[in-house]
């Protein structure tokens, strides 16, 4: 016998009743209630934590039971439907296993899943779309951030001519367009748009000791274009944003935005080294020593000594440690020397 509370489905009146089993029938009795129903006609809610269980009768009546053990004993099989989920949810082994698997899935997703997915998306992106995106971005830059170049027209023409002669690592004529702009807020910098437009800032052109260093920068930016880093970054950030919102959104939308920032730093670090390796190959193809890029990176690092420490700034900075990249390029030179012998 199990104590329960009965509601007739027509009013909110509580009836304290007792449940009994008679063969395949359930008897409900007490407080003006007396009914007999076939067990098969009842809907018995599955166990969920220590919440009350509900028995729904075909006519809309309902019983709430709080004595879980006694109820399970009374109804045996009938009460156990869906019980596997409750057993999993209350077994510490299953919970520990879930934590481990969920954590592993999360790590795998961020390390492999999202980058691979973003690469697929970036590759599938039609050229018309990436051209439209690049045009939009360039217009946005010109309106808010960039000013016309202050370099001498002869100098830019000479540089353009020299840079357009560069060959891609596979020997093809690299398809790109050089734009000169000035932007005091950005300092010595360069960037690439997905359609192959490469913007060189005056501050970088004047910082470089020679044109080979500028060619090295163009090689690096061409690496970004070749691997479609811009599009991949957009796709990755959107994916991280959506996933973080799903995972953390219940508590705070603010918190959900944080992983996007943190993980972006990691992804862009990979992209920078990938672009550096591409630049080294391109330079070797064109008879320029990869050390030219390392030289320029060291010059940049000397300008921003604080950007190179490994503290919190290093984690958040989307610009990976410049000196680290320069050291990696030193390794490239060694490879080249070995290959020459």
């Amino acid at each position: 016998m199990v104590d329960a509370v009965y509601f007739d489905g027509r009013s909110a009146q509580r009836h304290a009743v007792r449940l009994e089993l008679d063969g395949a029938d359930l008897l409900v009795s007490g407080d003006g209630v007396d009914r007999r129903d076939a067990l098969g006609s009842l809907r018995i809610s599955a166990r969920l934590g220590s919440t009350p269980r509900a028995l729904d009768f075909a006519d809309g009546a309902r019983c709430e039971v709080r004595e879980h053990e006694a109820f399970d004993t009374l109804l045996r099989e009938a009460a156990r439907r869906g019980g596997w989920l409750h057993r999993a949810e209350s077994s510490w082994r299953m919970i520990a296993l879930s934590v481990v698997v969920v954590a592993a899935c999360g790590v795998a997703l961020f390390v492999w899943g999202i980058p691979a997915g973003a690469q697929l998306v970036a590759r599938a992106m039609p050229d018309t779309l990436s051209r439209a995106l690049s045009d939009q971005t360039m217009k946005l830059f010109d309106r808010h951030l960039l000013k016309p170049t202050r370099l001498d027209a002869n100098r830019t023409a000479e540089l353009t001519g020299r840079l357009e002669d560069l060959r891609a690592p596979d020997g093809a004529q690299a398809a790109y367009r050089i734009e000169f702009r000035s932007a005091p807020t950005l300092g010595p910098n360069a960037f690439a748009l997905p359609d192959g437009t490469i913007v060189l800032l005056d501050e970088l052109v004047t910082l470089a000791d020679n044109d080979e260093q500028i060619a090295a920068v163009v090689g690096h930016e061409l690496g970004h274009v070749y691997y479609r880093h811009g599009l991949r970054l957009i796709a990755q950030n959107s994916a991280v944003g959506v996933l973080a919102a799903w995972w953390l959104g219940d508590v705070s939308a603010l918190l959900a935005a944080a992983p996007t920032l943190l993980i972006q730093a990691r992804y862009s670090r990979e992209f920078e080294s990938e672009a550096d390796r591409y630049a080294a190959e391109l330079m070797r193809r064109n008879g320029i020593a990869p050390s030219r890029l390392a030289e320029l990176l060291r010059k940049l690092a000397a300008l921003h000594p604080e950007a190179d420490d490994d503290g919190a700034a290093g984690l958040l900075a989307s610009h990976p440690a410049l000196l680290e990249r320069a050291r990696a390029l030193d390794g490239e030179r060694a490879d080249e020397a070995a290959a020459a012998h």
């Binding site: 807020t185 880093h229 700034a313 989307s318």
Partner: peptide, 25 residues
């Protein structure tokens, strides 16, 4: 303006100045 600039540079796969981004953010 700073935020718009940082966003635009990132969209192009570029490298915004970390100090500027940090203070803006």
């Amino acid at each position: 303006h700073m935020l718009g600039a940082v966003k635009a540079v990132q969209a192009a796969g570029g490298k915004p100045d970390p100090a500027m981004m940090m203070s803006a953010m």
